[in-house]
Design a binder for these strands. Structure first.
Lengths: 238, 238
DNA sequence: CTTTATATGTGAAACTTCTCACATAAATGC
DNA sequence: GCATTTATGTGAGAAGTTTCACATATAAAG
């Protein structure tokens, strides 16, 4: 009997889907542009304006909008406020979203202070840490012990959590979060979490992000690097 | 004359390519698994072991290895150490990679303390901030003023930078980094940076990561949500 | 009010990525 | 040492994504 057969039975089947399809990622990209253009006083955009700004083709922009049922005005282009409204609705930004943050280490602390979340109607209502020395208000948001998790999740109807705990406890904490009703997690621990299929996991691996840049920078420095790079580069970064 | 025509001339064409193709992202995924399995004392894996662990199909695993010229043993599977060696080479982890970090706000500080970078041979040799009050050693890494950037980049032959500055100064700092020889940037500012085509940009947008989870959680809660979700979910998260 | 110019929206074609299926190689058993 | 089993590696086919091209709508101009 091989060891892999044992492994099969020890582990629950991994469910790590790609939660963000490319077209949705591009919507984020377009929105970033639109916000900037709006600040500059622009009121109307055309598919090729956004295309130029984001490095996507104008066909792609229109197809993407079409997919999410965002429509413009033939010959007249798109109204920036209309577009932004549509996107707000898409991301449910009309209502506030309550979030919990688990793990108040360096990264957790930084995330709890990240002001952009609030600007985008995502409120971290409480943070949690097993270390009792961290149980005080830092950065204006209370830090609780894990045994108050259920209470807070219920009171604020929290569905989404940010996980910034050490990798060693990530799975354990995830299991507890799901037991208490969390259905979506942004995971900063460099671990592949095992979760039931209905739970949404979005992994953000800081090392991987850096390493992939290093990979392409090295590739670029090779003699025939640029050709190789162009090949790998033919798609857009969303 | 329409405003978009003006815009075309004001802005340099955006070059934001997708720097990480899916197969490469999956390689990171496989490696995360392999590291864990190795810690558990496993020495050999088969494509379907990795497949089960990562939620990818076994065909995909083999195809991916094939693409990066990583080969196993027919009938014998893959040796974990061999695989990891291959991946180290792929990411140039045999040699050390010197990195600079710009912006020592909350996030920058957290990143400068992130121990995983060092474990993976990515050394932040110096950090920079415009605020002179931050010019002291925090977290063991020196904090310099921006006018020492060139000196440090040259001395440590730095090619890659982490950008954790406010969005307002992100473009300006980027221009300076590129002038001083940086060719790869992990950008945490929620801005689409304009860079020459040979410069690698990897954007990490924390709000977008959270919002995309919220998007799918809401989708799931709708009546017919699950069907929709399954459709969007058919691909894997790499 | 009619004409013209131009930007959208979308099927169809081209291209890319993934899955399937099987030939091939190597370990195991007899 | 031969037969058998089983996992890899890879063309071929399927599925998905992007680009193309044009019909359609509408703003602007005459």
């Amino acid at each position: 009997m091989h060891i892999e057969i044992i492994l099969k039975h020890v582990y629950v089947k991994q469910v790590t889907k790609r939660i963000v399809k490319n077209s949705l990622k591009r919507i984020f990209l377009y929105r970033a542009c639109l916000v900037r253009l709006k600040l500059m006083g622009v009121e109307k955009v055309f598919s090729y304006t956004l295309a130029d700004e984001t490095g996507v083709t104008s066909d792609q922009v229109r197809k993407d909008f079409s997919e999410f049922n965002i429509r413009g005005n033939k010959r007249g282009g798109y109204d920036i406020n209309d577009l932004l409204d549509n996107m707000e609705k898409l991301f449910h930004r009309n209502k506030d979203n309550n979030i919990v943050l688990i793990g108040m280490g360096n990264l957790g602390l930084a995330l709890s202070k990240y002001s952009k979340f609030v600007q985008r109607h995502m409120n971290i209502v409480a943070t949690f840490d097993i270390d009792p020395f961290k149980h005080k208000i830092r950065s204006g948001i209370p830090v609780y012990s894990m045994n108050r998790l259920k209470e807070i999740i219920d009171r604020f109807r929290v569905k989404v959590a940010i996980l910034a705990v050490p990798e060693i406890s990530a799975q354990e904490v995830t299991d507890e979060l799901i037991r208490q009703g969390i259905t979506g997690i942004v995971n900063f621990a460099p671990v592949l979490l095992k979760v039931p299929p209905e739970v949404i996991i979005n992994n953000v691996n800081l090392c991987d992000e850096l390493e992939s840049v290093i990979y392409y920078v090295h590739l670029q420095n090779k003699d025939n690097g640029l050709k190789n790079l162009e090949l790998l580069y033919k798609d857009m970064k969303y």
